[in-house]
Every structure is written in structure tokens, then in C-alpha cells.
Amino acid sequence: MPSQVKPHVRSLLPGDWLILAAGLALVTGLWLQRTDSLDGRVIIRLEGRPFAEASLRLNRVIQVPGPLGESQVEIRDGRVRVAADPSPRQLCVRQGWIPPGGAAVCLPNRVAVENAASGYDSLNY
């Protein structure tokens, strides 16, 4: 239908403001959720299966019961490391703090810790 209704003189009508406000709220919500979900996750795997997922923001020590004993994953000040592990050569403990995107694997105890910090680089984009 060729509607020839004259548009109102003002560019922004109340409904437009409503739509803009709703859009803004949506976008703000998404940004907040995004920073929440992407700001550094720690993924711990046991025997290859996801055992726990934690935020890098929250300082805590996670006990992971592996076949040899208990591994301790420490999250502190936005960093993560394997603090203690029963593996004989202590490779994953001596690795120290895990860089963003990196991982430490305690193979004898079947524990893998991944620092899945955000990071949308051009490669995975």
C-alpha cells in the first residue's frame, strides 16, 4: 500500500526512543555478559574429560583427584598454576604460572590445566 503519511516533523518519536533504549539495554547486557564469560576461564581436565571450569578472577585452590593422588590447581590474582602434584618429575608444577592460552599437563596424574583466557586474535577470528 503506497502509504503517503507525512512523517512527523521531529526525527525521533517516542517509539523510536523506546526502540533505541531497548537496543541499548540489549547491547549493554551483552557487553556485560561478554566480559563475564570471556574474561579468563580455567579449564581443568581429568583423564581427558572436563573436570572443572573456573574463573580466573576468583582466587581459589581446586583439588583434582587423579589416579596417583591429588593435584592442586591454584588460581590467584588472575593467574593459574599447578601448585602441587604427585607426579614424579613435577613437570607441570615447575612450569609455573600458565600463560593465557597455555596449558600445563601432569601426564602421570592425568590432569590438564588450560588457561583459556579470552583473546580473539585475527587467527581464530
Binding site: 502509504s3 503519511v5 512523517p7 512527523h8 521531529r10 526525527s11 525521533l12 518519536l13 517516542p14 517509539g15 523510536d16 523506546l18 526502540i19 533505541l20 537496543g23
Partner: peptide
């Protein structure tokens, strides 16, 4: 969106909806 009341919804609202 074009059937929304013209008194309250103008081209800006329609444009934003379409863009989203």
C-alpha cells in the same frame, strides 16, 4: 514494523530495528 503507529514510530526506529 511499518504497521506500528506512525504517531510514535518514525524512520529512526524502523531503521534501528532493521539494522539489528
Amino acid at each position: 514494523a511499518m504497521h506500528l503507529p506512525r504517531r510514535w514510530f518514525g524512520p529512526v526506529g524502523l531503521s534501528v530495528l532493521a539494522a539489528l
